[in-house]
Nucleic acid binder design. Sequence first.
DNA 1: TTTCTTTTGCAACCAGGTTGCAGAAGCGTA
DNA 2: TACGCTTCTGCAACCTGGTTGCAAAAGAAA
Lengths: 142, 142
Amino acid sequence: MKQDNILEIFSDLGIRATTPRILIYEYIKLQSDTFSLGDIENALPDTDKSTIFRTLILFEEHHLIHSMEDGSGAMKYCLCRNQGECEEEEFHCHFYCEKCKKTYCLDNQASTNITLPKGFIMNHINFIIKGICDKCSHKTDI
Amino acid sequence: MKQDNILEIFSDLGIRATTPRILIYEYIKLQSDTFSLGDIENALPDTDKSTIFRTLILFEEHHLIHSMEDGSGAMKYCLCRNQGECEEEEFHCHFYCEKCKKTYCLDNQASTNITLPKGFIMNHINFIIKGICDKCSHKTDI
DNA sequence: TTTCTTTTGCAACCAGGTTGCAGAAGCGTA
DNA sequence: TACGCTTCTGCAACCTGGTTGCAAAAGAAA
Ligand SMILES: [Mn+2]
Ligand SMILES: [Mn+2]
Ligand SMILES: [Zn+2]
Ligand SMILES: [Zn+2]
């Protein structure tokens, strides 16, 4: 595991390696932070939106990517750093910059200590911190 | 402050007390957890969606309510327990039940310890825990 | 090749949110 | 009470992102 070859990653997971899937995965691998379906649409104008949509669902089912709601209106995704072998604890937090609209993965910068009320069962976490990112906070405003 | 009379709450904040605003605020006061624009639409079929929409914006600007994205597709709102005087620290967490689709306010059940990377400035938090609520977890499945 | 299964592209649809605008309502003043 | 100005409402239209049904294309198997 921890493959680098796309074809092997797909075949390990039993995913058929089609042209759109390879293009989409190649795009995803280049992203250091999060991306949306619309970002992929722009990057791959010859691939249909619905194909991208279904591919993202497929990738998420196989834990190749994670998804999150950052309040921007569009679902955001990020590459799973553990290629389908992420553990339950990988509930990492994200930062949404209200100025440049970029969403960053914060891997270990935020710790949470959760005690749920009796009877509540946690499956996922969607933890978004909103504010101004480092690049935008350095700029002088006006 | 900590008023109970709707008309006084509005006049304290300089909000004109119109019929739709009173109806909407009365609805909101009855809710123990979160609600959406669509919930209000259903409860008040004679009030237009855009009026409800603009009223929610107004209420949030005056900190009468908080809003959050719970991933359900619809923005959720909850009554501010401090009537417009909530402090920055009131970043409470919410729980979304994936079975009954209800979103609960978790006031003190989850603590977070956040250390952002250098240069990042936090303004808000959108912290949603997803899973199964107590009512739904007690039910025998099938 | 033929046949069967999976995947794709297109077009249409949907939900929730958002906007421009004309008329209604509210309010201060005469 | 009537007038003039400002704010608010309802309606209809629009927008964006997401979702679906379906026929054609591509892939795998025989
Ligand atoms: Mn992961
Ligand atoms: Mn509050
Ligand atoms: Zn930024
Ligand atoms: Zn539930």
